[in-house]
Amino acid sequence: MRKRYSKALVMVVLLLVAAAGLPAQGASTILHDVRPDPAVTKIAWLSEWFSPLAGTPADTRVFILDSGKPGATVFVAGGTHANEIAGILTAVLLVESAVPQTGRLLIIPNLNNSASTWTESTQLPAWIAIRTPSGTRFFKYGARYTNRVHQGTPDPEQYIHPKSNERLEGQESRNLNRVYPGKPDGTLTERLAWAVMQLLKQEHVDVAFDLHEAGPESRLANMIVANPKNLDMGAMAVLSLELEGIKMKLEPSSESFYGLSHREWGDETQACAFLIETPNPAQSLDSADPAEDSAYPLSVRVATHLASIQAILDAWNADAPEGKKATFTRWSEWENIARQGVGSFLK
C-alpha cells in the first residue's frame, strides 16, 4: 500500500499525457483519477468563477450534478488539505455515485490542487491504492499546504490574517483553510480562496461542506464544526448520527479566529457552512498507514463523512420549503461502505 508502485509512475505519465490535451486553463494542474457518473451534468474549472486562476497549479475541476428540478444547491469540497484523504475520497465517491433528485450538487474533490503536487514527508505514501471493481486505482496523497514553488512569494516570517490580525506561522500563508476569504490579487493560496468565495456567491450555494481529517488524538477528530448561524442544524445531525451509532462532536466556529472555511463561507455568503473532521492516523505519525490502519480504516472515515453530510442535509430538509430541499439517491449507506470498503463503491 505504501510503496511507490510502478503502476503509479505509469499513471502519472498517463495523466501528464492526458493533461497535454486539456484546454489552457487546466494545462498545469494535476488531472486526478475521477470517473464521473452520468449524473454529472457538467465538468467545469474553478477558474470559471475567477478567471485569474486559469493556468495556475491551483485550478481544479468542479463536478456539477444538476437534477434540473428546484432544490438546494449543495457544495462539497475535499482536498483543502491534500493529505486528508478521506475527504478527497468522499468527494470522489459522490461524483461517481450520487444522483440528485432535487437541486444541485457541486463537488470539488481536490480543492487545493497545488497541495496535491507534493508530500510533506518521505515516510508518507505519495499515492493511495484502492481496489475497485474496475481494478486498482491510485489517489494522490498530497500535503497540507500549497506547494511553496507555486505560491509566488516566499513564506513571510508571520502570516497576519487581514480581518483578525491574528498572527500565525509564516507557512500558514499557504494553508487554504487559514486565508479565506482570500484576495483577488494575493498569493496563489489567497486567489484560490477568493475563487471559492466567488463560486459560493455566484451559485447561491445553500449548504457547503469542507471535508477534513485530523490526528486521532486531536480535539477535532470526529467533529462537525458549524458556523454559528447553522449550529442547530449541526446539533440535529449529531443526534441523528448518534442514533446510527456514529458519535460526532459539535463546535461552533470561533468568534475570534478568522480565515477558516466554516467561518468565512458562512459569514460572507448565504451558505450554511460546515467542516467535518475524521481521524487520520498518518496525521499524528508519519509511519502510520493513512488507509489501512486497523483502528481508523479509510472506509469507516469516508462512511462517516458521507453519513455526516446526509444527516446535515436531513436537518436542512426538515425546515426547507418545497423547492429548496436537497435529496439524492444512490448514496451508499454508512454500514455498507464501512464493511465492504470504499473501493467497492467507486467505478
Binding site: 449550529l231 442547530d232 449541526g234 446539533a235 440535529m236 449529531v238 443526534l239 459539535l250 463546535e251 461552533p252
Partner: peptide, 14 residues
Amino acid sequence: TSDAAIVKVLVNTR
C-alpha cells in the same frame, strides 16, 4: 460547551 446547543435541539425540536 456547545453540547448545550445539542441539548436544546433535543429538548425543544425533538
